[in-house]
Nucleic acid binder design. Structure first.
Lengths: 199, 199
DNA sequence: CAGGTTCGGCTAACGCCATTAGCTTTTAGC
DNA sequence: GCTAAAAGCTAATGGCGTTAGCCGAACCTG
């Protein structure tokens, strides 16, 4: 019986691909083993178990998302950068719904957790987008969270088929980009302050 | 051996409460039976199984969220209505993370599915908020999706402990409400159109 | 090229969970 | 009070994650 030649990276990559195919909730150790042409217990030579596998898939997804968004932003600024980042992020989530789902609800163990490192890298890509809007320091964190909520919310709702009604979804997303762009420019001009809401 | 006096509603309510306590992913038929002082197979007299239980919890959560948002909006308009709706929605998700998690990834069977009915009711509450902004018809659907993405994204990211860095989260949320309010008012005045983004 | 060690696969077995079948007892209706 | 439906139970099945322990392949050393 020849060896399969597996290693942790190959197992995690196959697990991520399988999650994209069958949905993260249906990703099972047995199914993954079958896909790899191996018996289930053999996987434990490469990953610690299902929980460990999930965390590694989440880290991989975060890292890939950071690459996608970071790469898409290169050479753009302002509205173009925002649009590129948002489109790249949504495209990634829609192309890889399974591995992205793995990132939800996983809290990194410590700052050196690969998941945490990748998450900071993704955050950095969005921070670069904000730089073009010249937003005052106290507002940057808020704007970052707003941007992340918007992208995460839209992408996950669409991935979960949460938009059931009529209007075209791509059009809605472009509308959303324009909305965010206008809003962020208003932040620079001082229409939205970090202080308490206007009375 | 006296009867426990259960019925479907009681089982679903206990399941939702348990999901809030231990997390939706850890909600198990055995654990729920134990909580109700009953053996596991007895639950099958009231719900069809785990999948049916999950769907009923999701429907309950949607219905409660619709009540919370709809009630909070009563008597307000414009920015006040938006703030009330957003705060009510976030408060609901943070107080009931388990049952809200049940709603993600559940697609209703048909239009009469209780889940679909409740979802339409929740959507209606947000539509009522938009009414105060006098947004043109072609933009209403986009604005609705934007609002839903924003609220869903922020609440789920916070519930999953996705915001790890320093700035105060409540402050970020108020900032986000102000941001959305300004943006929606700009939609009315025509700064954002439903047409393609400006060059 | 020989021999030992490490490493990656395997089978067997355990426990947990969801689910079904079939029995018993309570409860409600006539 | 009798009957029938409803609500609980025990027992059993199958699937999954996981662990223990075995055995052969690959690699490194001399």
């Amino acid at each position: 019986m020849p060896r399969a030649g597996l290693d942790p990276a190959a197992v995690v990559a196959a697990g991520a691909a399988l999650a994209d195919e069958v949905g993260f909730a249906h990703l099972t150790m047995g199914l993954l083993a079958q896909r790899l042409g191996v018996r289930t217990p053999s996987l434990y030579k490469h990953v610690g178990g299902q929980d460990d596998l999930n965390r590694r898939i989440a880290a991989l997804a975060m890292s890939e998302a950071a690459d996608a968004v970071g790469g898409a932003v290169q050479g753009y600024a302002g509205r173009d950068a925002l649009a590129a980042a948002a489109r790249a992020f949504r495209a990634f989530v829609l192309e890889h719904p399974g591995r992205y789902a793995a990132t939800i609800g996983v809290e990194p163990a410590d700052r050196d957790d690969p998941m945490a490192v990748a998450a900071r890298r993704l955050l950095g890509a969005f921070t670069a987008v904000l730089r073009g809007y010249e937003i005052a320091e106290p507002d940057v964190d808020h704007a970052l969270r707003m941007l992340r909520s918007l992208c995460h919310g839209f992408a996950t709702l669409q991935a979960a088929d949460g938009f059931q009604w009529s209007a075209d979804i791509d059009e809605s997303f472009e509308w959303l980009i324009t909305f965010a762009d206008r809003g962020l420019r208003a932040v620079r001009t001082g229409d939205v302050s970090s202080a308490a809401p206007s009375p």
